[in-house]
Amino acid sequence: MTASQRVKRERFLPFAFERHGLSVRVDSASLDGASLPLDEGDALHVDDEEWRELTLAGAVELRKGALGGLPGDERVRPGEVADLWLVVQCDRTAWRAGHRLELEGEGAKFELSLERDRLAGVVEVVPWLVRRRSEKVPPGYAGAAGARLATGARFAVYPHEPASRAGEFLEVVYVSFGADAVLSTQPWRLYHLETHGETPVLRINADHQDVVRVLDAKGQTGLEARLREVFYDLISRGVWSLLFMSAVEALDEDGNAPRRWQEGVLTELLPFLFPGAPKAERMDELLALRADEAHLSLLATQCDEALQQRLDLVKHINRLIDTARGSR
């Protein structure tokens, strides 16, 4: 299916401005002094619940053409007329804060501290090249104090948030399988996923106390935290497969899922399942695979591949290996 319309909006400033002139590079992050592993790309997810201050260290870099917002004579001495700024903005807490950086050569180093109590939802860190004082400039250039000269891709921080109460995530509960009428016959199980209700429920066997201790481990470094991530991967793989199969089974011939969570599962997995296919064709591919019994094993294989990629299994295992080696 192809969308029959597309709308694009783009903003322009009435003077020379380089919208891709700057880039933010985060080299290290620490949480209350303890170093934090970085995610790939231009975002950082903080999983810990209890922390006060997140510190990011890195640099804002001037990319080629970054000084295009300055007239020619100023381009040779940008440090005299312009400053680099990092502006932190958090919509949920109406928080805005600017940090001026010293522009040296090709950019500026920074160390930025973010207090958890000021943040909720997404926090954006935006780089700006800004005119320092009002100047007389040739037509086509910005001469006002504070005028925007260049910006670049923003860096996003996602502080930990309690999972929504409104069913955004799978419901996960600890249950003593031994005390449960349904599950007591299978005390050896680690988890049980129920998919027949309105929303699925993942029950984790609280009777395996050592396992639970690892599942509840805090922090992002240390052996237990690494183990926890690998345990999560194990559970996630099984559970995602079950969720996926259950959702696929429920689809009607047009690819509509009767329950919202089933749609959510497919929205999450289809891009990994059919990475080469245009968004619109993924559902068709899925339905074609489902329709042909001969392709069911192919579907299972693709689901497995998608999950391995999505879960970043190797990364977590490698971290565990590194930590285990280090602690020997």
Partner: peptide, 12 residues
Amino acid sequence: GLRVAEAMGREE
């Protein structure tokens, strides 16, 4: 929308 308020002083 053409400026960065954080980079401006009180008088500006």
